[in-house]
Design a binder for these strands. Structure first.
Lengths: 351, 351
DNA sequence: AGGTACTGTGGGAGCGCTCCCACAAGTGAT
DNA sequence: ATCACTTGTGGGAGCGCTCCCACAGTACCT
């Protein structure tokens, strides 16, 4: 096979040039057909398509990437160790949505963990090498340097869960505020009067929004907010347990708990059991995420569902748009977009 | 920058050529340094490395891929819809192991779902285009054409969970047979005498091995195997429920159940509850996978743990070896390797 | 008739790298 | 001194594609 030795290749895959020869046209024309350019006559297009089919031609992506300076791949960057990522069902659900949305596309999904400093280092290099056309960021802490780095490198990026109210990156989020309100209003509707809240990690914007929703729901229902019923958690089970214990000590009379995640609720449940409280008899419990845990908990957990799959889809849409927008010109100053999707309360037996 | 128009690029990344100029050497020499060739003098190497550092040079992977015919990427192919993949914790755990193992490498991980026919089609194209250096296959049914296709395309591949005893692909698996034995022996040790087994999908080799382990453990303990205590499941919760109901109907006196997965066990638990049986009082329950579900179940589920992270690592090791072996020559007929890793029983309150 | 415009097409140049051949310089055996 | 290696190096050619310029052909104005 031509060139300087067939380097261990197997079948000698057909090239653009061969397709062109076969179809009796020039290289440029084949390229135009492959890329769906409108400036090709119907007859020529048909001839080329026939040749492509006969030869089983598949474009060489490396060559395309080199020539066109794009990669047809995006990276899902997880700035956490692998362990953490998979411990929270939120992530796998998100990944599923992204995967589904991406399967309608030619884009490939790269999974990248940036948990340790060494991995961060490598990731920075990787991104600097422009090996992906865009980046999806999930679960970013308020002080993470990654988003700014992406901005500096001028790499299209979409973040799930903005870092603040004026996030500089395009973002997708569920309605944390509204979701929290739903949960609290539900508990109020069931006649609960002393509703505690175990928060998420306070450096996560979404957790703050849930606190806001909790507060406003109470206030608008004419209740006063008792700050001692709010206890910080960290989205983990152990955190939920600790927070619940603290709450029980401080406000033994509480009759409901809204936890910022299902995992937190699971921890709270343990603490409640240990304290001899029944669920939902003594204390009603509502979680957040509607993950698998909610269905497996005993009693089954009422929880706020986020449309995670839709969020994944949305992220992909936005990212692809950004990539497409950026391609033709150096059109800086794109309008940032922020999508917020509604939540839904799934009622089960814990409340 | 140079060429036919700076196509929207931002910083004008340095090229090999520029590094060479800076270091006062030829292009070939820089390439040799970058790729760690030993045929470079110490002085030259140092000079090149300095130039690389000064310029912040990062090799362009597309160019490398084109010239060298490799991609430095591997694909994790999941021949299931996204939904199924993430419903079973087994997969996310596996993915975590793979991710961890890969982070010591320059290799990138691509996540590919091949659930629908259309995706299959695309995947086939993708693989035919040799866009990855190797493939990791998980959860493959006995009749899946994918493995053979990979074999034909001569793409290095490692499969997790071989399809049969004489799997043609290099494989990694946990000791399904031994794990099942551990579970049954444990139940026997607790004085249980009528032990049922809800199997996995019967077209999965590992499920068969678990049945074998179940049978042999009973036989070697001097018990006779009651075929009516074996009921097929399909690894799902609903399947577990159905199977358990059937078993209770047929053998109401059973006092223990070994389920082929934790999810199955969760289903069985529901059916047991509905039938008024207590766990572990009336019936002891043992699962398989030791997933998050096991810890969240009530009562907490005794389960057989597979060293999934280690399996992921092992798969990567084997795959990288295959890729490396294949690179230099057309060395066909590589010896297939099959790694089997031990399991461990995690005892909790359900047994 | 000449101009202007647009449509469709061919092919040169170039993307940034790896591979390999050529060759200089050194080393040691004959 | 000649030959035969070995070690280190430079640079041409080529990977398969996209981009863009050039140009033929046709259409529609003045």
């Amino acid at each position: 096979m031509a060139g300087h030795g067939a380097r261990g290749r197997s079948g000698g895959r057909p090239t653009l040039e061969e397709v062109a020869a076969r179809a009796g046209v020039g290289r440029g024309t084949v390229s135009r057909v492959i890329n769906g350019s409108p400036r090709v006559s119907e007859a020529t297009r048909a001839a080329v398509e026939a040749a492509v089919a006969e030869l089983g031609y598949v474009p060489n992506t490396a060559a395309r990437a080199l020539a066109a300076n794009r990669t047809d791949a995006i990276a899902l960057v997880v700035p956490e160790p692998e362990t953490r990522f998979f411990a929270e069902p939120y992530f796998s659900d998100m990944l599923r949505g992204v995967g589904a949305a991406l399967s309608d596309t030619e884009m490939q999904l790269l999974l990248t963990f940036a948990g340790s400093d060494r991995k961060r280092q490598r990731l920075a290099q990787y991104l600097a090498a422009h090996r992906v056309d865009g980046v999806l960021l999930v679960s970013v802490h308020a002080d993470d340097p990654l988003p700014d780095m992406l901005d500096r490198l001028d790499i299209p990026a979409v973040i799930s869960g903005p870092r603040s109210a004026d996030e500089s990156l395009t973002s997708v989020d569920s309605d944390n505020y509204g979701g929290a309100r739903q949960a609290v209003e539900h508990l109020l509707g069931r006649g609960r009067r002393s509703i505690a809240h175990i928060t998420g990690r306070l450096d996560v914007y979404g957790a703050q929004r849930r606190i806001d929703g909790y507060r406003d729901a109470l206030r608008e229902a004419g209740h006063e907010v008792d700050e001692l019923l709010i206890e910080p958690g960290d989205f983990t089970e152990e955190g939920g347990r600790r927070a619940m214990a603290a709450l029980l000590e401080r406000r033994p009379g509480l009759d409901a708990v809204f936890a910022a995640s299902d995992v937190t609720a699971a921890g709270a449940r343990h603490a409640l059991r240990e304290a001899g409280r029944t669920i939902p008899g003594d204390v009603a419990l509502v979680g957040y995420d509607d993950s698998a845990i909610a269905r497996h908990m005993d009693p089954q957990l009422t929880s706020v569902r986020q449309p995670i799959e839709e969020m994944g889809r949305s992220m992909i849409d936005l990212l692809l748009t950004e990539i497409a927008d950026r391609r033709p010109a150096v059109s800086r100053g794109l309008e940032r977009r922020h999508v917020v999707l509604p939540t839904e309360l799934v009622e089960r037996s814990s409340s």
